[in-house]
Each structure stands twice: as C-alpha cells, then as structure tokens.
Design a protein around this nucleic acid. Structure first.
Ligand SMILES: [Mn+2]
Ligand SMILES: [Mn+2]
Ligand SMILES: [Zn+2]
Ligand SMILES: [Zn+2]
Lengths: 137, 137
DNA sequence: ATTGTTGATGCAACCGGGTTGCAAAGTTAC
DNA sequence: GTAACTTTGCAACCCGGTTGCATCAACAAT
C-alpha cells in the first residue's frame, strides 16, 4: 500500500511526505475526478492551502491533470501511468448532470478539428454533459 | 441605430430599457466575446448587478450565449440571428493565448462524439486554445 | 552532535467573479 | 391618480482560488 504510493510519487519525482501520501491515497481510491473543496471534505482537519499546493505539485509533475468541466470548480484526476500530458493524449471528459460527477473518458480521444486560416492550435478542452451509465438505470 | 437595437430586443421579447440598449450596443460593436468584468470597464459608472441581470436576461431570451473558455470568467457573445441555442447548433470557441480574446467559430460545428455504452449526451463544450490570425503575423 | 539550508506545512488574509436581498425608482394597467 | 409589477442601484455576501509569512521537518555540511 504505502509502498506503492511512495513508488508512484518517486516515479514522478515528488518527495513522499505524509500529506502527499494521504492525498494520493484518496486520489487512487477515487474513481471520479475530485475538486479541491471536495478533497477538503475527505479529511476532518486539513489546510486548504497545503492541499492546494499538493495538487499543484502533483499536476506540475504529471501525476494528475486538471479538468475544467465548466462546473465552476476545477477537478483533478490521476493521469494514466504512461501519460506525458501531451496534446495528442488529451481525452474527453464527461460531466453527469444527475450525479454531478466528472470522469475521464480515457478511451475517447478528442476528435481533431480544423480551424480557420492562420489559426494555430495548442490544446483543446472538450467536455460532454449528459447522464452517466450509473444514473441511467 | 437605436431603432435596430430596439428591434433586436423586441424580437427576443426583451423590453428595451436604456440600460439594455446600452449593453446591446456594446455587444454589437464587440467582435469578440466579452465577460461581465470586461463589460463593466466599458462604462464609467455602472452597477455590476444590473449588468449581471441584463446579461442573464439576454441569455435566457437567446439574444446571447455564454462561453466558458476556461479562463475563469464566463464570456458572452451575440447569438446568430437564427439561433435557438439547440445542441445541434453548438459551435467551437477559440481562445487566443496571445491576445487573450475569445471568439465564436460559428462556421465550425462541434464534431459529433461517441460515448461509452449507456451514456447519454445532452451538450458539449469544446474550446480550442491557440494563436489567432491577428496575433499570427 | 551542531549548525545551516532547503523545502513543506499551517494559518490567516486577500482577491475576484459571481450572486442575492432589499429598497428606491420607473413603468404599466386600471 | 393609484395599485401592481418590473427594473435598477447599492451593499453585502459566497466561494474557489491564491499568496505572504512564520514555523517546522528533512537533510547536508561541518
Ligand atoms: Mn482526464
Ligand atoms: Mn459562440
Ligand atoms: Zn451520473
Ligand atoms: Zn490573438
């Protein structure tokens, strides 16, 4: 358990502190993307700023990626092991309007798009809203 | 001028008040999407809440649509005359990383996307970041 | 072991966009 | 004119995100 977590941190060149281990633990158990405020609720006593900086560190080191699903709060999810967060590996995100959960559709790459003349593309954010399979039945 | 503006308001069932005429005027002159804070700066003395409610009214009546480009502030742009804001008529939005302006790519419909089994689709937001033609030369 | 350096943490305060309650002013209907 | 309704202005609030600063823990050099 702790071994795996520390390995994961080390593999991304993140020094494994107690706080970071706890946060990564939560992120691993979490099957949907989670926001900073939501993450705060996962601990009974925790400092927002520390969590914030932990997430920023994780993101910078490509352990997690941030997701702007238009809900007003940025969410975070673990990157795939192989992920380098390059534009090619961007995937679609899904926001369920029933359960309000956000998930990575890792198997659904963002379709390529054409742009007007003289526009150049750097990145694309694509968020689909709808009802997830859990809420469907 | 004022005639056209009032016509536009009336055609969307919006009572043409002085404030609304002013705001619509700005929106028409504006070739890129504009946020509430930006809109505030367009007037020397104006109440944020009034602008806010004006935009909400415009949006509800499909005179404008809101754009979440991930910049942290929602932007607004005029709808096409014929627009009913249906999912089919959604278009891609472009955020220029140089000039920071957001624009509607009205001629670029959002590509259709497949979803996992038992997921249903309600709407899609697609924002492309890059460099616009103005900033390119 | 002692010291100095670096990075992580905790706390508090701040910022900015968005939103709401409420009273005053304006508009419309009778 | 009066009553009912709508719009406006002002103030206050909410909340996610961010920063400054002091303290603490880890670690390296001596
Ligand atoms: Mn994802
Ligand atoms: Mn648009
Ligand atoms: Zn759901
Ligand atoms: Zn530009």
């Amino acid at each position: 358990m702790k071994k795996e977590i520390d390995n994961k941190l080390n593999s991304k060149n993140i020094k494994p502190t107690a706080m970071r281990e706890l946060v990564l633990q939560v992120l691993i158990e979490q099957k949907t993307a989670i926001s900073l405020p939501q993450l705060e609720h996962k601990f009974e006593k925790v400092d927002k700023a520390t969590l914030y900086r932990t997430l920023k560190t994780f993101e910078k080191n490509k352990l997690i990626h941030s997701i702007d699903d238009g809900s007003g709060t940025v969410k975070y999810a673990l990157c795939q092991d192989t992920c380098e967060c390059m534009p090619e590996e961007l995937h679609v995100h899904f926001l369920c309007t029933k359960c309000n959960q956000t998930l990575c559709l890792n198997d659904f790459p963002i379709p390529s798009i054409s742009l007007p003349n003289n526009f150049s593309l750097e990145s694309v954010n694509m968020v689909v809203k709808g009802v997830c399979s859990n809420c469907k039945k």
